[in-house]
Amino acid sequence: MTAFSTPDLADEHPDVRAIELQFTNYGSHARFSGPVVTIKCHEDNSLVKAAVAEPGEGRVIVVDGGGSLRRALLGDMLAEKAAANGWAGLVINGVIRDVDQIGVTELGVQALGTTPLKTEKLGEGQRDVTIAFGGVTIVPGEYVYADNNGVLVSAVALL
């Protein structure tokens, strides 16, 4: 992966959009980027589980969990599956669990925080839909750039 910093990308490309949330970087990859696959769900990670089982091809899963801090949308087993299947990372408007294991998994993971509680698997949610959170609308196929400074969204590839 090409090294980048989100501040430099924002300076070079004034049309990028910054997600206005304070994410924490939990994955072993301090920076990650790729084309976006979107998931919209609330306290049910069934669609996340299905997505990470597919070939990732360097893409990034952006999950709009509504900002819920009650149920983890990602845990160690799903993170390991995502890494094994070639996903670059996940950006989660929600929380995760198993942070010690995720921290050594070859994957980028940004989330709002942590909880020990898992979700119920009800099969609810939507995939590949336009989502909006943190002041940014995100369309499937756009590009995400994430590092310890924040998360940027661009309509076109910047690297």
Rank of each mutant, 00 (worst) to 15 (best):
K81A: 15
V129F: 13
D64W: 08
G113A: 13
G134C: 11
K40F: 15
E54A: 13
D76T: 04
P55E: 12
V52K: 02
L47S: 03
V63K: 03
N93Y: 11
P35H: 12
N148P: 03
A83Y: 00
L112A: 10
A111Y: 03
L90C: 04
S33C: 10
D100I: 05
V63M: 06
D100K: 10
N93H: 03
R59M: 00
F32C: 11
F133I: 01
H13Y: 10
G150W: 03
E106A: 15
G56Y: 09
V99G: 08
E54I: 02
V91W: 00
D100N: 09
A72T: 01
N85Q: 03
Y26W: 14
L78P: 00
L152P: 04
A84V: 08
V63H: 02
A30T: 09
V48D: 06
P7W: 11
S33R: 05
V139E: 15
L69Y: 12
D11G: 05
A50F: 13
D76W: 14
D100V: 09
E80F: 11
E43W: 01
D76V: 06
R70A: 15
I39F: 06
G134A: 14
G86D: 10
P116A: 00
V52S: 07
D147H: 09
G56L: 06
R31F: 15
G86S: 12
V139N: 08
P140S: 09
Q101G: 11
L117P: 01
L78V: 06
I92Y: 08
G56A: 14
D147W: 02
A53W: 11
F23S: 02
A79Y: 09
G66V: 05
D147M: 03
A84C: 09
P35Q: 13
A111V: 09
S33P: 05
L69A: 11
S28I: 14
A146E: 10
L21E: 09
R97W: 06
W87D: 02
V95Y: 04
P140N: 06
V37N: 06
V129A: 08
L112P: 02
A50H: 10
T38M: 07
V95P: 00
L159T: 08
P14I: 14
L47Q: 08
G66D: 10
I92L: 15
S46L: 08
Q101W: 01
A111D: 02
T6F: 05
P116C: 03
F32S: 01
V99Y: 04
G135A: 07
D15R: 03
Y143I: 02
D147Q: 05
L122C: 08
A155N: 01
I138Q: 02
G141R: 07
A155Q: 05
L73D: 01
P14F: 12
V95L: 09
F23G: 10
A51C: 09
V139C: 04
V91M: 05
M77N: 15
E124R: 11
V136E: 14
A53M: 10
Y26Q: 12
L117D: 07
I19N: 07
L78N: 09
D15N: 08
